[in-house]
Design a protein around this nucleic acid. Sequence first.
DNA 1: GGAGGCTATGTTGGATTACG
DNA 2: CGTAATCCAACATAGCCTCC
Length: 276
Amino acid sequence: MTDLIERYTVESLLPVDLGARVIRQRLTSAGVHWHDYYELCLVLSGTAEHVLNGEPLTIGAGSAFLLSPADLHELRVLGPEPLDCYNTVIEPALMERQLAALGPASVHGFPWRADDFGGAGPDLRRLRAECEEPRLGSSLLVEALVAGLVVELARRCDVGSGPRVRRPAGEDQLRDAVLFVDRHFREPITLADVAARAHLSANYFSERFRQFTGTPFQLYLQERRLRFARSLLAASALSVSEVCHASGFNSLSHFGRAYRRRYGAAPSAGHESMKM
DNA sequence: GGAGGCTATGTTGGATTACG
DNA sequence: CGTAATCCAACATAGCCTCC
């Protein structure tokens, strides 16, 4: 079963309750995988082809990317030298506090990428030291260091420069709801579930969600699932039905219909794009 | 501002058939 | 066997209105 997509969990990689952990890695390859945490990676040396959501991009020293739990990727090292990098595992709750502080525009637009993030090396070294030998105040320092890195990367990625949406009252609840959808779209979530989390009635939540995101709840959820499905099709040889269910759709017929409507081609054509 | 009721509309999922 | 296409009943949702 070479086509199964690996999934890494925050439980297995964050043994200490600090909210983050920096791992120094020297990679020769990393197959297609995704995580249930946010991942910030800074390349120290080496070059690789980084296939992010099915889209290949060459990365090298100074390249950095911040992925959400909804992104999947693969690394193919180019040349004899391994890819030396700092890989930071960031707990979703910690990351989402940072995103909340950055404003609603930051919720969208993942993954973040920059090619000139080499200056973050010292911060990552310090973060790594705090994580490896926690002392008094380490959790505070970890959160502050992560905040600094997130802000710096957000500025480089021009996060938040996109079109502004109206900012109604109760924004925190809605931002949380959007983040919840972004993290759980592969599960059978309903508007009622998310509305309950936001402590709003389903009707009222539906209205406010559309005002906040500019997209009706159902459409937002479907778009998220379709984007993931498209990435999965491009990045793997999983069957259309496997991708359908891995993306949160329960019906192959509905998935096929929605996919064709969105991308103008059948899901099976998604495999073709990776062969180019 | 927030919630509840109602209804038209859209979406979903299961079944079925056809095709390569 | 995997996928595409279609149909249809059931369900979910958006939008509107009213009320507190």
